[in-house]
Simulated assay, not measured.
Amino acid sequence: MRTVLNVIWLLLCGIWLAIGYVLAGVVCCLLIVTIPFGLASFRIADFALWPFGRQLVRREDAGAPSTIGNVIWIIFAGWWLALAHLTTAVALAVTIIGIPLAWASLKLIPVSLVPLGRIIVPTDDAQATRYPVVR
């Protein structure tokens, strides 16, 4: 079922979201100082392509730099992105068939608000909170 939902999501919403996040990531990486935000945008783009069967968890080793970066991110980009995902979710939920897609859009709100110090893991992993950190 996840595969079917991911394919429908990809065709209707995911590809456009991923392209937007990748473009934002490229711009952030070009500006040198904002490279961490660019990498976070690439991570969000990956999650936006295939949201079903995956979840966002906090990294064990995330510290003060991630928190400071997330505060800056929320001020300049996070709340706009969260509002856009919420609006999209409401528009998708109006139709009965769009309810699972609305759920996926709502799943993207936490990662769009605080992307630094987070990793995306499969939901099948019974110990997702203890998922090994990839460096």
Results as ranks from 00 to 15, higher is better:
P122Q: 02
I72K: 01
W103R: 11
P65W: 05
R58A: 15
V114S: 04
R118P: 13
L113T: 03
L12V: 13
I44D: 01
G38E: 06
W50G: 06
L49A: 12
L108S: 05
G63Q: 04
C28Y: 12
D124R: 07
T123S: 07
L12N: 01
Y21S: 01
R43F: 10
V33H: 07
V71Y: 04
I97K: 01
G14S: 09
V27S: 14
W50L: 15
S105I: 02
D125A: 00
V134F: 07
R43M: 14
Y21F: 14
V27M: 14
P100G: 06
D46Q: 12
Q55M: 14
V94H: 08
R2Y: 07
L49C: 14
D125E: 00
F76Q: 07
E60R: 15
V121Y: 02
I74Q: 02
C13T: 06
R130N: 06
V134G: 04
R59F: 10
I75T: 08
I19D: 02
T123I: 14
R135L: 14
V134T: 05
V111G: 03
A89I: 06
L12K: 03
D124A: 03
F76L: 14
L113A: 07
M1A: 11
P115E: 01
T34S: 12
W79A: 12
P122K: 07
I35T: 11
R130S: 02
C13L: 11
G117W: 00
L49R: 13
V57A: 03
A93N: 09
Y21T: 02
L56N: 00
S66G: 14
R59I: 08
Q55Y: 03
I109K: 03
W9L: 13
L11Y: 04
A62F: 06
V4E: 04
C29K: 12
A93Y: 06
A77D: 06
F42Q: 08
F76E: 06
I74C: 14
T88C: 11
V27C: 15
Q55V: 11
G63P: 15
L81T: 01
I8E: 00
P122M: 02
V90P: 13
R59E: 09
C29L: 15
I75M: 10
S41R: 12
Y131R: 01
I35E: 10
A93D: 03
F37M: 09
A64N: 05
A62T: 02
M1Y: 05
W73D: 00
L106M: 09
A128P: 01
V27K: 13
D61W: 09
T95C: 15
H85W: 05
